[in-house]
């Protein structure tokens, strides 16, 4: 394997591990951005440069900004990180860690190694994706738009400032 690929993969995994172990939320967000960037590099190597761009623009850009905004609005402080520390004592990790490790092992066991290797990576361009997206999968696009609309309405409704309710 290429050294660059190894580097990106390790950035991704280590970033993800850091995300779930941080005590301060903003740090976790920054590590998550690093994870996304590593993943985007991997996607480029897989030939999906369009997907990589979307990963950076939408995930690392838009969704992470959402997180940052919410964390800013929540106004977390010193007591919160202390409480996080309280919640993250080692014995808490035991059960979930074992469960995740079991699933990881099982999934790895279930992967059937493919011996035939594809000669070279043929990039799948945005053009191909667009043709497929608005050809065979046009109904999927409609459904996704419904989903986004529903999410919009739900977020608006939940986040509405209900002065009269209090």
């Amino acid at each position: 394997m290429h050294a660059l690929a190894l580097l990106a993969a390790s950035v991704t995994v280590i970033g993800a591990t850091m995300v779930i172990t941080r005590k301060v939320a903003v740090h976790a967000v920054l590590y998550l951005v690093a994870t996304m960037l590593g993943l985007a590099a991997l996607l480029v190597m897989l030939g999906g440069s369009f997907a990589a761009m979307l990963e950076i623009i939408i995930y690392a850009g838009a969704i992470m900004v959402l997180f940052v905004f919410v964390i800013m609005m929540l106004n977390l402080g010193q007591p919160d990180s202390a409480r996080e520390k309280e919640w993250l004592r080692p014995h808490v990790w035991l059960g979930p860690g074992v469960l995740a490790a079991i699933i990881c092992a099982e999934l790895l066991y279930c992967i059937v190694p493919l011996s035939d290797s594809v000669p070279s990576v043929v990039p799948i361009t945005a053009h191909d994706v667009g043709l497929s997206l608005f050809g065979r999968y046009v109904l999927m696009v409609e459904l996704a738009s419904f989903l986004l609309l529903a999410g919009l309405v739900a977020a608006f409704h939940i986040g509405r400032n209900r002065v009269e309710d209090r």
Binding site: G95, P96, L99, A100, I102, I103, E106, L107, Y109, C110
Partner: peptide, 16 residues
């Protein structure tokens, strides 16, 4: 979530 994960691991184990 833990129960879902447990169910997943049990199902995978059965498949294995």
């Amino acid at each position: 979530a833990a129960w879902i994960a447990g169910g997943l691991s049990a199902g995978l184990a059965m498949a294995m």
